[in-house]
Amino acid sequence: MNLPIINKSMSRNAKVFISLLLVVVVLFAISGIFNPRSLSPNHILEVVRQSAPLGITAMGQSAVILTGGIDLSVGEIITMTNIISADMMKGRNLRTVPVVLLLLLIGALIGGMNGFMIATTNIPPMVMTFAMSSMVKGGYLLYSGGAPRGRVSPILRYIGTERFLGIPVTIIVYALLIVAVLYYFQKTKWGRSAYFIGNNPVAAEYAGIPKTYRLIMIYAFSAMMAVIAGLILSGYIGIGNFDVGGDSYMLNSIASSVVGGNTFNGIGNVGGAAIGALIITVIESVMTSLGVAETGKLVMRGIIIITMVTLYMGSIDLGKVKKLFSGEGGSLEDARGN
């Protein structure tokens, strides 16, 4: 890319952030062409609000991805949060705080278990968190007996749906959370270690980073972020329901994280995931307003992931690709796979 505002002296993350914001602007412009009303501040705020649960999950997911792992349990944790919060709150304000604290504790335990097993045994993160998601699913099915009931408290409803001075309360909570997470991962010793562990596990160990504790903390963080996302989503939906879309959050959180510039070797920024989530949400909303069904969204998600990650890798030798398509040299043979 040869854009004037991106120059070589900038850090990788700065470049990524600027390109991501450009993508967001372009996407909004495209949606504006199709539907001018979608550029109204109200609609833009609505899209940002919609991206909040995904962005929160994706920030947790990013921390895990940066350490070279992956968390497939976030989707079921979101569904679990919805089921348990609706059932326990039964629409009473007084119960909000205890239930939220309990759910955060459950999340920390689930994530901590993930991290502990991954750090102390050879089990690959993908398998551990997948198995955990199966157990969490069994857990909430047993808890609800197959029939979710109850509704969330008015306070949670307020956070999920209402506006304060014209700004959706969800966005205020989301913004505070982003600031806290960014501070934690950019400025504190504990947060920085997520990057170190992913970038060079051996060096991290020699540097005296207690890998087991940090991994437990990072997976617990991811699970707790999923719980928070689940709470906000429950506030929006209002009732307990198995069909809150846990599955789509699992895949979309990974997508948002890698679109946000995070890699499996500790390069990236946890905050990028929030912009990644915004991009994914904007695309989905544009697709919906165009009347494109689920197909278009899924196909776009795939294409966006591949394009963005390819660009980040910076590993495409453009000469090689040109050669490939013009039919020079031996590379074409490779392309045919014979």
Partner: peptide
Amino acid sequence: SKFNLEPLIATLATGSI
């Protein structure tokens, strides 16, 4: 192989498509 993408991410994306 050609774009050097992480297999996990690449196949997740094509799976979505």
